[in-house]
Design a protein around this nucleic acid. Sequence first.
DNA 1: GCAAATTGGAATAAAAAATTCCAATTCCCG
DNA 2: CGGGAATTGGAATTTTTTATTCCAATTTGC
Lengths: 286, 286
Amino acid sequence: MSILRKISAQLETMAPADRQIGQFIIDNPDQMLRLSSAALAVETGRSQSSVVKFSQKLGYAGYQELKLAVSEAKAQEWQAPAGMIHGTIEVGDGYLTILQKLFSSKLQAMQQTISVNNESDIEKALEALHDARRIHLAGVGASSLVARDFSYKLMKLGRNVLHDSDSHVQMANASTLGPDDLLFALSYSGTSIETLRIAELASQRQATVIVVTGLQDNPLAHVADICLHTVGDEDRVRSSAITARDAQLMLTDLLFILLVQRQPDAYDYVHNSETAVSVLKAKRLS
Amino acid sequence: MSILRKISAQLETMAPADRQIGQFIIDNPDQMLRLSSAALAVETGRSQSSVVKFSQKLGYAGYQELKLAVSEAKAQEWQAPAGMIHGTIEVGDGYLTILQKLFSSKLQAMQQTISVNNESDIEKALEALHDARRIHLAGVGASSLVARDFSYKLMKLGRNVLHDSDSHVQMANASTLGPDDLLFALSYSGTSIETLRIAELASQRQATVIVVTGLQDNPLAHVADICLHTVGDEDRVRSSAITARDAQLMLTDLLFILLVQRQPDAYDYVHNSETAVSVLKAKRLS
DNA sequence: GCAAATTGGAATAAAAAATTCCAATTCCCG
DNA sequence: CGGGAATTGGAATTTTTTATTCCAATTTGC
């Protein structure tokens, strides 16, 4: 149990000096860690011996041990998921609160995305990606960046990839797909008209259609041969495609790694890619 | 920067007593926090004054301040959530192992990225972004997607944003920047020639230069007015810009949220954006 | 080779932590 | 309600810890 929490719980039943010292520590843990027992006494208008006695009443040998416990309590607040601040980012939130809420939202989106997809669906998608002659990536808005990121990774493996940010070109590309090909379509809402039309066309042309979309029922999911789900809570982070994007990236990154594991020469391809790019890097500082 | 990391980096060039004391602290940070300077001297077979001098050579007023810094470094240290498999993805890894290692690597990259940047640097970047007349985003490869993602978000707020994936166009755009403008340059290596040249030009033209780059010393960091750092371990995830990209996104997402909090009409802009896009969404299934 | 700089322990001084002493206040029981 | 016991908490004192000074030995640089 965090000492800060323990002090809070006991505050009401403490004697006056103890209450004042305890309150200061709860309100200012960072500052307390920098103060000597005498300086803390000055800050609280109490005596130096009261500070030491306060520590001992809490079960510590002295002030130094109390300091250590406060330091550990602070460390746990940041790290333990249970102690992390969850919730909607709000107008009055300070820096640390925003940071923790953002981190927590990202973590949750990725974790939930993993748990709503079972291994057999991932394996099916992997199998289809592995076997596809050509892979066409489709998505608009934030999803288009995920599609592009995934297309770069697939191209790095030497795969035959079609991707263009212009939805008309995407549509034209889809009209060339056949039964040996695959469409990988991303849309969190599942209602983007361009992505939907492209998926419908690919499906008509007997290409395999993998859809990455949100959990809600939506028209894009209905076109899918294989449907992978993402979970994001955009309301938490001001509705700007942050958690939905992170959730999609979690899936595409996982598929990429699994493909790498499946392709014997994958590491060679990746290494070749790095070597090729290195001529575009400045030489090391001497 | 973590004091533990700093001590590690300097160990080789330290004199014998300092090296011994430094090594003990790196190996036993928990224990060190419980020891007086005299007790630490006994543990290392050195003198008590050497312990204090060691602290002072590192830039602290004394041993107590060093202790505080070690305590903070420990708090920010990465710790895998309980039970999670952590480590390098290897050839024989199964699905679940790969999944956990990937997830853990993402968490580590994001958390470490947060801990290596202090609040005052983030606030400086925020201030500069908030005040800039025009914001130019630069980056190539994976960084170009992060740049684009951030450009979309900034444009959603009604900001005057310059972004193009073509590095020649980026360069031409940089030639129009002035003292009221800002360049936001992303490169994990800090050695991409295009990004570097663009940053140098922006700097010459007196624009504010914010650089988002890795922790290692690099030419791009030297051009920066404000430097934000990212931590990613690409070796863990087959070296394909996964964790480096996640680290960069963590920073750009944070800056975006902080900007939203600073801009009174931000929510209106975001809402207007959603309304505008809704005409490109299929109607709900009936 | 020599002077200057660095290293680092012993001794000393200063600061911080802990304990003791004791007066004032509160609590509890008869 | 009164008196004794227990608690509170600051001042004074003691002990421990931290920081600085002194100085000899070693290393470095010219």
